[in-house]
Design a protein around this nucleic acid. Sequence first.
RNA 1: GGAGGGGUAGCGAAGAGGCUAAACGCGGCAGACUGUAAAUCUGCUCCCAACGGGUUCGGCGGUUCGAAACCGUCCCCCUCCA
Length: 294
Amino acid sequence: MKDIIAIVGPTGVGKTKLSIELAKKLNAEIISCDSMQFYKGLDIGTAKIKEYEKQGIKHHLIDILDPKDSFSVAEYQTIVRNKIKELQDKKITPILVGGSGLYIASVLYDYRFLGKERDQEYLSNYKDYSLEDLTNKLREKAPKIANNTDLKNRRRVLRALEKTDEDLDLNSKKLFYKNAIIIALDLKRDILYERINKRVDNMIEEGLECEAEKLYSLNYESQATMAIGYKELFKHFEGLMYLEDSIELIKRNSRRYAKRQITWFKNKMECYWIKVDLNDFSKTVETAYKYIKK
RNA sequence: GGAGGGGUAGCGAAGAGGCUAAACGCGGCAGACUGUAAAUCUGCUCCCAACGGGUUCGGCGGUUCGAAACCGUCCCCCUCCA
């Protein structure tokens, strides 16, 4: 029997549904691993679970942040590991559910955040530097780190500039929890994409535009405002785009996101993959349950 | 019937004699990613036994050392006039 369960997969496969079904069978509570569901007010666009859908199952790490707050994986790791301990002490099985690969990996694997954290002020010094300038600077300052950095990625190069050699000595291949299981949900690509498209239409019907407008009116630039489903509508609010085009963009970005998620789970984590049975979801639940009991 | 505009890879769209298997965007695929991660970034996408070869830019026929680009002709589409 596994004592920590993670349910991962691309957006729109049915992670939430499976997590509830499993939690009902186990003495379990759910910990969200969704980098956007942390934020209050981002409900429709992040497909946040609704109160009645929870069916009495306790959820953690949802609505813990204000949309203008910033957050980091390192903080997340600490909070969640503490939360896991707390639940286990109470003999409750934690089920981690979400699609934010790095966040999940940071908890489940032996990720260590030893160096300096990101420093917005420091980074702003380099605002006007070209990528080339930045790479040269990095090569000069820390050649070892430069060799381990994607030098075509401006954001990475910037971050690398504030890294220390401690960051190089990282061991993340090992599971942090020995008895954890990662279940990854999957669907045939075209079916997944179709579902994603439909889900976006539903979100619009449920009032995503209104929700986005509220976020927009805060007039903040933060991690939350980069969420898919919101940033595209902002373009419409700014008069740069027709509503229909914004909606299409949301669909496109969601599809691309799903694809990136699949790449991550396939290559960065060791998962038990389950093809979701859309006609008979109980079969999917059964399969997952079997893996957990092993 | 007359006058214009146009037909380019899965789609949209550049290209107007050699540097073009053909920009760019979309779509698709693969990948990277340890402190912004729903972010950020990279590669591939005509066909093949593929560091080489084969077939392309509506059809056919020309001009030329050389054409997607020039000429003729035919087919199709759009706009306007009758």
